[in-house]
Nucleic acid binder design. Structure first.
Lengths: 247, 247
DNA sequence: CGTCCCCTTGAATGAAGTCAATACGCGTGG
DNA sequence: CCACGCGTATTGACTTCATTCAAGGGGACG
């Protein structure tokens, strides 16, 4: 059940079988399902658990008073909602299922137990939360500096790399269950312009995107077009040095 | 020395005198100074300490290959660089002093000691890091959805609120030591357009901004113009309920 | 006194938004 | 079974917001 999470965290560290078991158990504790386009958490809610995404896509979003909406981040399998979110009194944004979604609710107690007893997992969770912050900063760069063309290309690169880190790609292909409206609300462009820009990306021979299936024909060319430098994802097996006393 | 930090964290919790002393000591340990426009940390550096900003302004920024630059966040007195940054192998961005800056370097060991022995501080540091993440998300909304006018107004509102939380405002006035170039690189607009938009804000009677001094003539009107909702700063004395067994 | 940085202004250009219409697939209910 | 509505993708024409280019002014500093 926690295999996506484990796979992702093992980009950073090497787990013992006990570590893995602890994570598996955590993912089995309280499993919930959401329908597509259903709110998982609403602005104003008091967070009581950490959510581990087991399957499906979701996003954080915020709405302005006049209806403009911004998607602030995506959750894919293996992702966690902010650890220790309980520190805050109430949510300042909402989380929406973009597909049917399965999450495991991890209680505060369980998380504290892990923090105390499983230092390797704790370390890995720190890593994951720092990477999440790093992604959010990169989105700032994306929205602030990149052109429409680069922006969408960058988003697709990032999603591809993240999906690959949890094993949800085959070769140059992955599923991106987003509408053009979603993409627009992510990169701050109108739907019409997203449509035209996607056509440019297709026209440049960089991608195929149809029926929610993305194919990146030349990943290196795509990265260049997007000015995409994956170092902010910190996926380069950085912490394998922490390795593992196997127990 | 740590008074800005303490003041900020006490938005969230109430410290004992021991807590305060621990923070004061941490801020005195290793103090460093930087000149204006000097890099404090460079992309590629291996982080060894957490930096606590004691005085002056700094920013995180990232440069694209072709020279475009984006400021991703600001550090003002009382702010901390990512706790537990040591988990990552190397910095994916740089930090630049915008004015003369004083920082206290907090060692990994000291931080771990605090984590173990000072739960109230630990809790407060969690709060601060969640607020930082929340700010970064709000910047995504700012860049993605708001017009130039709203965007700059929003930035100024945020900075005003953050400065007020550490006592660096007088009435409706504060110091904002940013050039129009800085503002442009923050909100993703050209310098020329920043200039014109600031004139609009002045023309609308909302602000005075001259010689780095910002006056907000009508904070409520300004917030409305910016679609600024301060809840994402989680400053509303949220956790005072955690209050304090004074010891 | 000259240089550099920062702020300001005008005019021309360009990128992206808006408005409007069409098309397609899907599910629902008559 | 078909009609209808709805969400999504697409296209064209026009508008607007923001960038670019270019130039000038003021203050700080060597």
């Amino acid at each position: 059940m926690a295999s996506y999470l484990i796979r992702k965290l093992e980009q950073f560290t090497k787990f013992s079988s006990t570590d893995r078991q602890v994570l598996e158990d955590a993912a089995r504790a309280r499993v919930r399902h959401f329908r597509s386009r259903e709110d998982i958490i609403r602005e104003g809610d008091e967070p009581r658990n950490v959510n581990l995404f087991l399957g499906g896509w979701a996003c954080r979003y915020k709405s302005l008073e006049d209806g403009r909406r911004q998607i602030m981040s995506y959750f894919i399998p293996g992702d966690l909602c902010d650890l220790n979110i309980f520190v805050l009194r109430s949510m300042d944004h909402s989380i929406l299922a973009l597909t049917p979604v399965t999450v495991a609710e991890i209680s505060r107690d369980l998380l504290e137990d892990i923090t105390v007893n499983q230092p390797r997992i704790t370390q890995a969770l720190w890593w994951e939360s720092l990477v999440t912050a790093s992604i959010q900063r990169e989105w700032t760069v994306n929205l602030g500096q990149r052109t429409a063309f680069e922006r969408i290309a960058h988003l697709l690169c990032e999603l591809f790399f993240r999906l690959r880190a949890v094993g949800l790609t085959q070769d140059n292909t992955c599923e991106i269950p987003l509408t053009q409206v979603d993409i627009g609300e992510t990169v701050g462009l109108s739907t019409v312009h997203v449509n035209r820009t996607l056509q440019e990306l297709r026209g440049a021979g960089l991608i195929t995107l149809r029926d929610k299936i993305l194919v990146i024909h030349d990943l290196e060319a795509m990265q260049n077009a997007a000015l995409f430098n994956p170092n902010y994802l910190h996926l380069n097996h950085v912490g394998r040095h922490l390795d593992a006393n196997v127990d």
